[in-house]
């Protein structure tokens, strides 16, 4: 079961970028803001299959780097979505704080004992996604840019981010405890992350299809 979910998750992870590149010229301009997220998901899936699964390289280095890349691919999305100086400054302040926080946490980083510090970064990214998403929702109501949100690739991806980050927040927060406590099998809980990851990547794929010009 675990392996099956793992394969599905990585398979779905590479598809959005492939479909995007396949018909790149037919994708609406707005979609370009999502490209870093697609690239990150593509490389994350490839890395996990090749380096973690096949070559058995410890995933903890990658996981810490992934958190950094994940934050900045999301920051790029919001940076492109907002126009005003206020929003740009807000994203900049959030990002500077994140970088400082990230460097500070790197100092206390230890191989096989970093789930707790990783979770701090996840909480920060979740908070960032919530704040910027709410501001973006407010902006679309004021500017009235969309006839139907369900057809907007950006809305689909932002919703996916909100759902993924919200559903896995407690998992990341408690992962250190769950892993160390012998009463629990950590993989049972980790399935939630894989399932939500598949769901998010399916939403990414949907966003690519919605991004095609009709």
């Amino acid at each position: 079961m675990q392996e099956f979910l793992y394969i599905i998750s990585n398979f779905v992870g590479v598809l959005p970028l492939i479909f995007y590149l396949y018909r790149k010229e037919k994708i609406i301009n707005e979609f370009k803001t999502l490209v870093p997220i697609l690239i990150l998901n593509f490389f994350s899936s490839v890395y996990e299959v090749v380096f973690t699964y096949k070559l058995q390289i410890d995933s903890e280095y990658w996981f810490r780097l992934y958190l950094f890349l994940e934050y900045f691919s999301i920051a790029y999305l919001f940076w492109k979505l907002f126009e005003g100086t206020f929003y740009k400054r807000l994203i900049l302040i959030f990002s500077i704080v994140y970088v400082v926080f990230y460097i500070l946490l790197l100092k206390s980083w230890e191989l096989h004992n970093n789930l707790q510090t990783d979770s701090y970064l996840t909480v920060y990214t979740t908070f960032f996604v919530y704040v910027l998403s709410i501001l973006w929702f407010r902006k679309i109501f004021i500017k009235f840019e969309y006839d139907s949100l369900i057809h907007s690739p950006v809305f689909i991806v932002i919703s996916g981010l909100l759902l993924y980050m919200s559903s896995t927040l407690f998992l990341f927060l408690m992962s250190d405890f769950l892993l160390k406590d012998i009463r629990y099998d950590f993989l049972d809980f980790w399935r939630l992350n894989i399932a939500m990851c598949i769901f998010f990547r399916l939403l990414l794929l949907t966003a690519v299809f919605k991004g095609y010009r009709r």
């Binding site: 998403s133 709410i134 929702f137 909100l162 759902l163 980050m165 919200s166 559903s167 896995t168 927040l169 407690f170 998992l171 927060l173 408690m174 405890f177 769950l178 406590d181 629990y184 809980f189 939630l192």
Partner: peptide
Amino acid sequence: MIPVFWIGTFIMLFLAVSL
């Protein structure tokens, strides 16, 4: 601790879905 995990996850998911 397990109920906390599930309740917390459910609340966060509910919050996101509601939003």
